[in-house]
């Protein structure tokens, strides 16, 4: 007879009940793990923001620590337009990553002439399959996503998180 405890061990015992960052669908948003955390703080306040270069004026997306055009690190946070139009979209029948609903609606958005962010691939929420049309207007929306723990000097801190998508303007 094998040790009766052995029978209960499935997979890697050390991982039992543990948060596994390698399988996380969302960013590490907290200050401890990235320097663009103001982006996520701004999301919480309902703002869609990014970094603008104070040297050359370039507005980058995603935001960063330096300007990808001139490599200056003199940046400021600016707001982006929250409305866009659907150029094309897809309602995926199969293969949505686990944790996302299926069908998942994704769209290619156009923010209009002269907008600093020209286009973006985005998930469309609060919308049923078959409801969306090319040319429809959509707006920025923020929602909670699962938090994760981080260990800081043997203490566990819970990091709350949010993410954004777009929803039809009704």
């Amino acid at each position: 007879m094998a040790d009766e405890n052995m029978a209960e061990i499935v997979g890697t015992p050390a991982l039992d009940g543990t948060y596994i960052s390698e399988m996380d669908m969302w960013p590490f948003e907290c200050q401890e793990f990235n320097r663009i955390y103001p982006f996520y703080e701004n999301l919480r306040a309902g703002k869609f923001t990014t970094t603008k270069c104070q040297k050359c004026g370039h507005i980058a997306y995603p935001p960063g620590v330096i300007c990808p055009k001139c490599w200056s690190d003199e940046l400021e946070w600016v707001e982006l337009p929250q409305k866009a139009r659907i150029v094309t979209f897809t309602e995926t029948q199969a293969g949505a990553p686990i944790g996302f609903p299926s069908p998942i609606i994704m769209a290619w958005l156009n923010f209009g002439e002269g907008a600093p962010l020209k286009h973006l691939l985005a998930r469309i929420v609060n919308c049923k399959e078959g409801e969306l049309n090319e040319g429809d207007e959509v707006k920025f929306v923020v929602f909670d996503v699962p938090s994760h723990p981080i260990e800081i000097k043997k203490e566990t801190k819970i990091c709350d998180r949010v993410y954004y998508a777009f929803e039809p303007v009704k």
Binding site: F89, T90, G95, P97, F100, I104, L121, Y163
Partner: peptide
């Protein structure tokens, strides 16, 4: 499917639900 999230730009396009490529190429 979790690995698929890592081969795109994880914190941006993947967090929108873009994992396996069919939706992107369908568009």
């Amino acid at each position: 499917n979790y690995t698929q999230l890592m081969v795109n730009d994880h914190d941006w396009d993947s967090a929108m639900g873009l994992g396996v490529p069919p939706p992107f190429f369908a568009m």
